[in-house]
Design a protein around this nucleic acid. Structure first.
Lengths: 207, 207
DNA sequence: ATTTACCTTGTCCTTTAGTACAATAGTTTT
DNA sequence: AAAACTATTGTACTAAAGGACAAGGTAAAT
């Protein structure tokens, strides 16, 4: 696998060289690669200075168009979360500090070449925090709530949380509006919700 | 670093043995370790069968209490996202399939021992999708909605979306309850919301 | 100067929501 | 078998919510 560092620097950082002595370093991606072997695989290490999101976007686009299956890693001078998210959403498979020591770089390469994705511990931790409080765990938390309810209460609760009125809920569950109220009342009590709006907020929670 | 596999199996899977021939395998964590060297570092590989969340929780707790700085990895027979999130939130530093090939296990160990955190590509991809679509997009969409409202309507709307009653909103905005209703009514019309619950769902949307 | 958009508040009325107090009947647990 | 939990529905009442109709005041745009 051929490593190519794209950086404004004329010579690579020492850690890069240490990790990958045979890597190429160039200022920009060769749009018309002279010899793109069929089975050759490329790993691009994009050196990211601040305020180059424009450049990042177009460069990644270019690489993805010209080089099939190329792995793209972003090395940021000043890593930041938003940029990392952005890069990953474009298909970048690793995001790390430009001054990461050599062993981290080789580690990254190991992970990447096995089809993995690499993020520094801090970032990953942050992502996990974010996601656990959001989507992933959301289902969990909702379940946590719902599991304290009886079967029927659950059914009523989820409909109510969608914004349906008691009458509508009654119709689709084929019970009386009064019964809906009964289930909702006990639901409120069990979950400590003040009313259906709070219930909805609990079950649609994003925090 | 001493590797300890905690599993109901009497002998480890072949990939485990291949990756770590010198690892110990035991059915449970030794609560009172006979010889916990000061500087010894331990890596626990918890083999997770389905429906053992209880066990997982208590085991992780136990390890964290008895072994300082121990790294904990979960190997799941049937990996699933919710469980992964849960485990990571408890401080587990890697989560993977129990039948991961040996090279993945060593890869995990490499990453972990350098202070990293390891997740399989699928899971990580999912996490990234989730976080980007949430953290980023959500605010956008809400703004989209809010910007069609007047200043005052906005203020009322956000309070209503939190679950406050008209009376409460009136108090904090220092206006009459009637005025709150007026703002809400026009808000409903502008945003096409049926009532305050729908408004809340719109403004708290997680998509 | 006139129109337009906001903010404010009033009264009146209808519809929902939610609770209190009860009751019947099936299921599960102890 | 008795106790506890669940599902169902009734009547009645209180309190919000939301709309209809109306109107006075301010500020900006035409």
């Amino acid at each position: 696998m051929q490593d190519i560092f794209i950086s404004p620097l004329t010579s690579g950082l020492t850690s890069w060289v240490e990790a990958f002595p045979k890597a190429k370093i160039s200022a920009m991606v060769n749009a018309k690669p002279t010899k793109v072997q069929k089975n050759a695989s490329y790993m691009f290490w994009l050196h990211m200075n601040e305020d180059r999101q424009q450049w990042l976007t177009s460069t990644i686009d270019l690489i993805q168009k010209k080089y099939e299956n190329a792995k793209i890693v972003v090395l940021a001078n000043a890593p930041n979360q938003a940029e990392a998210f952005y890069a990953m959403s474009m298909g970048v498979v690793a995001y790390s500090h430009a001054y990461s020591p050599a062993f981290v770089l080789t580690e990254i390469k190991t992970v990447i070449s096995h089809g993995g994705v690499w993020l520094g511990p801090d970032l990953l931790k942050r992502i996990i925090e974010v996601s656990t409080s959001l989507a992933g765990n959301q289902a969990e938390q909702v379940n946590q709530h719902l599991k304290t309810l009886t079967k029927r209460e659950k059914e009523v609760a989820v409909e109510a949380a969608k914004g349906l009125s008691n009458k509508e809920i009654a119709r689709i569950l084929n019970i009386t509006e009064r019964t809906v109220k009964a289930h909702l009342s006990s639901t409120f009590e069990r979950l400590g919700a003040k009313d259906r709006l709070h219930l909805a907020l609990m079950l649609n929670k994003k925090a």
